[in-house]
Amino acid sequence: MTQRSRNFLLLAPAGAWFLVMLVIPLTVVLIFSFGERGAAGGYVPAFTLEQYANLPARWAAFKNTLILAPAGTLASLLIAYPLAYYLAVRADPRWKTALLVLVIVPFWTSILIRSYAWIFLLGGRGIPALLAAIGIEDVRLINTPFAVLIGIVYGYLPLMVFPIFVNLDRLDKRLLEASSDLGASPWRTFLQVTLPMSLPGIATGCLLVFILLMGEFLIPAILGGGKVFFVGNALVDLFLQSRNWAYGSAVAATLVILMLVSVTAYMRLIRRLGAQREDVALM
């Protein structure tokens, strides 16, 4: 048997799997999105743009997603960066790995159960009860955008910390010393050396978190209580409750397109920022 045919055989099961479980289903979604809804739900073949024209009916879900996904990404970044900096630059090298693992581990455990924990903490008898004890009455936290934001940061913080840590950890610490030897204040060293050099890590972290947030369902479902809903929640409603497959497919296709467009635009922006930095460095 030649190497070529052997490789072909080895790739066959994975290839078949990708074809049947990924390529065909995604094509079906695309075809259905141009179809019509059946009388008893489901799908009737047709070629119409009606479903796409009807998208504004779910505008609230798109609006929430397009506001809270970037906001959640930004909030995660602001909280993750100082921690990643501490772990990479300041922490005792002997404890570094253990401390990093402690940050990462929650990410690989059930997000369902970790979000459930916040029902406890944000619900009427959790933090609001504590606040009432010190005189701040009538604080409502659960089922608000704030609760969803906390759930997001809690769920995706590890994913943001890791790439920034890796980036800062590889950074040549002598650059920081050189900067301070040349009379720069610590703050200036951070702004002009550390922060620009950690941009690739920031970019990766934001990309990972943003992609996952665009398709989020669980966190708004559990902590938003039907008041703060994402496109993901609209999709569950359309496919599992109202069984409107044609319209649901159009919503799903639009979500994927929105994701691709924003990710591409984001990558362009990052590349341009990187290029500008090199220009500055050359001067």
């Binding site: 079906v28 979604v29 996952l212 799903a252 994927v256």
Partner: peptide, 11 residues
């Protein structure tokens, strides 16, 4: 997104 994989597999 996982949710799109779920939907696509379903239909």
């Amino acid at each position: 997104p996982g949710i799109v994989i779920g939907i696509a597999t379903l239909i």
